[in-house]
């Protein structure tokens, strides 16, 4: 009995780890959708760039002989958030702003183009090969009987939990308490009206791209350190999973993105645990179809009200 419970707990930990990083990336999709009603298909690429920058920072620091973990982590995180935010801002300026107000399909295409451009830009500037980095954080805690199945949680997983929790709390506080956050909510409710009431909606939209990109960079740094490999194409799958998470939770809703990420991560790890690893994507996308069948707006999504 103990073993069964421990095994379940272990798989739950694994699921939450991967799910919380999906949630971090999903925020970027859901915020942009919530405000301008468009999907930013270049968002996965921002995550990929975040991973690359974190790798560069960590390698650079270890070349300087700095290996004190808190410093390494902080520098990697901050530099990757800064650079990725710049990319987020640039994507908005180049691929979205000039096309705003036109047909909704046009920015979609330009975002896909942006995604290809960024993939190939990184591929050309950083090389087509996978880059690999040894583990920065090793070890973990085991609990359970001495002989028999032990559940374990690695220090890296703990770091992922804590970093995700802090980012999510900060974002929630920012949206609910700060002036810009209030402007974000107002713009999401009604872009035109918010503009008429004196909110600089251009800045608000730019800010959502920046926030989304910064969170994707957090995910990029964490997963980069966890897996230790990256290439120019990791953004595609990560973006797809995060987008699924956003839709699952109800696109446009922040708590929805967090919930969607966790559900996706846990369902993947449970499928691998009790069924088979090869079907984990089948089950998680099957789940998406089921939920959308019964609740087309996602778990926490609100039905779209026709704006007059």
């Amino acid at each position: 009995m103990l073993e069964v419970t421990l095994y379940f707990v272990q798989q739950l930990i694994n699921g939450i780890t991967i799910g919380s990083t999906y949630a971090l990336i999903a925020i970027g999709y859901t915020m942009v959708y919530g405000i301008i009603g468009m999907i930013n298909f270049a968002h996965g690429e921002v995550y990929m760039i975040g991973t690359y920058i974190a790798f560069m920072a960590i390698t650079g620091l270890s070349m300087l002989g700095i290996e004190f973990l808190p410093i390494v982590f902080a520098v990697a995180l901050i530099s990757s958030m800064l650079v990725s935010s710049t990319f987020g801002l640039a994507i908005e300026r180049v691929a979205y702003r000039p096309l705003r107000g036109g047909n909704r399909l046009i920015p979609l295409i330009s975002a896909i183009g942006m995604s290809f451009f960024l993939q190939n830009y990184v591929r050309i500037s950083q090389g087509a090969r996978d880059i690999a980095m040894p583990s920065v954080v090793t070890g973990g805690w085991n609990f359970g009987p001495e002989h028999g199945f032990q559940a374990s949680i690695s220090y890296m997983q703990i770091i992922i939990f804590i970093a995700t929790f802090i980012s999510m709390t900060a974002l929630t506080l920012f949206i609910s308490r700060s002036r810009l956050g209030r402007a974000c909510r107002a713009t999401a409710q009604d872009l035109k009206m918010a503009g008429l009431l004196g909110i600089n909606t251009n800045n608000v939209i730019a800010a959502t791209f920046v926030i989304g990109a910064a969170l994707a960079a957090v995910a990029g740094t964490l997963l980069g350190m966890y897996y230790g490999v990256a290439n120019a194409y990791i953004g595609f799958l990560a973006g797809l999973k995060a987008f699924t998470a956003a839709v699952l939770g109800g696109i446009g809703s922040l708590p929805g993105a967090m919930l969607g990420g966790l559900i996706l991560g846990i369902s993947e790890s449970m499928t691998a645990a009790y069924f088979s690893t090869e079907y984990k994507d089948v089950v998680s996308f099957g789940l998406l179809v089921l939920i959308l069948l019964f609740k087309p707006t996602g778990i926490l999504g609100k039905p779209e009200v026709e704006k007059i």
């Binding site: 694994n14 991967i18 997963l223 799958l237 790890s269 691998a272 088979s276 690893t277 090869e278 984990k280």
Partner: peptide, 13 residues
């Protein structure tokens, strides 16, 4: 058992 090519997270397995 099969895994998906390109997968990175094998902790459940």
């Amino acid at each position: 058992e099969g895994v998906n090519k390109g997968d990175k997270d094998f902790s459940p397995l």
